[in-house]
Simulated scan of single mutants.
Amino acid sequence: MDNDRSAATAPVGSRREFIRGCLAAGGAALATATTSRPAAARETYQRPPEALGLLYDATLCIGCKACVAACKRANDNPPEFSTVDKLWDTPLDTSGYTFNIIKMYRHGTMQTKDAEENGYAFMKTSCMHCADPSCVSACPVTAMTKDPTTGIVAYDAEACVGCRYCVVACPFGIPK
C-alpha cells in the first residue's frame, strides 16, 4: 500500500491539523488587527440647534385626543376604526396611519386624576425624534431619515423594502 494519499482520502488527523492551523492563523490575524488600532465608539449625535419639539404636559391632558386628530389631518392620514359602528376614528395604538396616540392609565375606582391608587392618567405615545435614532441607523435603504435642521425622523414608504429592521431597532416600538 502506498503512503502517498490524495487530498480526498487524507486521514482525519491531517484535516484536524489543517482546521487548527486555519483557526490559529485567523486568531493571529484578529489579534494583530485589534492591537494595531484600539476600538472606539463614535460620538453620539447631538440635537441640531434649530430642532423642533412638542411639549406634552400629562397633568394638563384631559384625554380629548384633539392632538391625535390634528396629527392625522396634518399628515393626510385616513381614520382607523377599532369599533364595529365605524363612526369615530378610534385607533388603539400607533401605526402607519396614526403617528401619536393618547392612552389612559386606569387603576381601581378611577376617582382621582394622576393618582396611582384609584386613579387615572393620560399618556402620549409617539415618535421621540431621538437625537441619535436607532431606527434610522438600522434602515439599510434609508427609508428612515433624520432631518439635519429640524431633527424630525421621517419615513419614506417608496424607499422601504419591508425588512422591519426599524421596528426591531426602535426601543419605543413606534415604527410599525
Score class of each variant (00 low, 15 high):
His107Arg: 08
Cys61Glu: 04
Asp57Ile: 00
Tyr56Pro: 00
Glu117Asn: 08
Cys61Gly: 03
Ile152Phe: 13
Ala66Pro: 01
Val136Ser: 06
Gly173Gln: 05
Val136Asn: 09
Val12Pro: 04
Cys61Asn: 07
Phe99Asn: 04
His107Gly: 02
Gln111Glu: 15
Glu50Ala: 07
Val141Pro: 11
Arg73Tyr: 14
Ala69Ser: 13
Leu87Glu: 13
Arg42Met: 07
Thr32Glu: 15
Thr90Lys: 15
Val84Thr: 12
Asn118Thr: 04
Thr90Glu: 10
Phe172Asn: 13
Gly26Val: 00
Cys135Leu: 08
Ala70Tyr: 02
Ala138Gly: 07
Glu117Ile: 15
Tyr165Gly: 00
Cys160Thr: 02
Leu54Asp: 04
Ser6Gly: 11
Arg42Phe: 11
Pro79Asp: 08
His129Asn: 11
Asn75Lys: 10
Arg5Glu: 10
Ser6Trp: 14
Phe122Ala: 02
Asn3Gln: 14
Gly151Trp: 05
Cys61Ser: 09
Lys86Arg: 13
Val153Gln: 02
Pro48Asp: 14
Thr32Met: 15
Val12Ser: 12
Glu17Gly: 11
Met110Glu: 14
Lys86Pro: 01
Ser82Pro: 02
Asp147Met: 01
Gly63Ile: 01
Gly13Ala: 08
Val153Met: 06
Lys72Leu: 07
Asn3Ile: 11
Ile19Cys: 02
Cys22Asn: 07
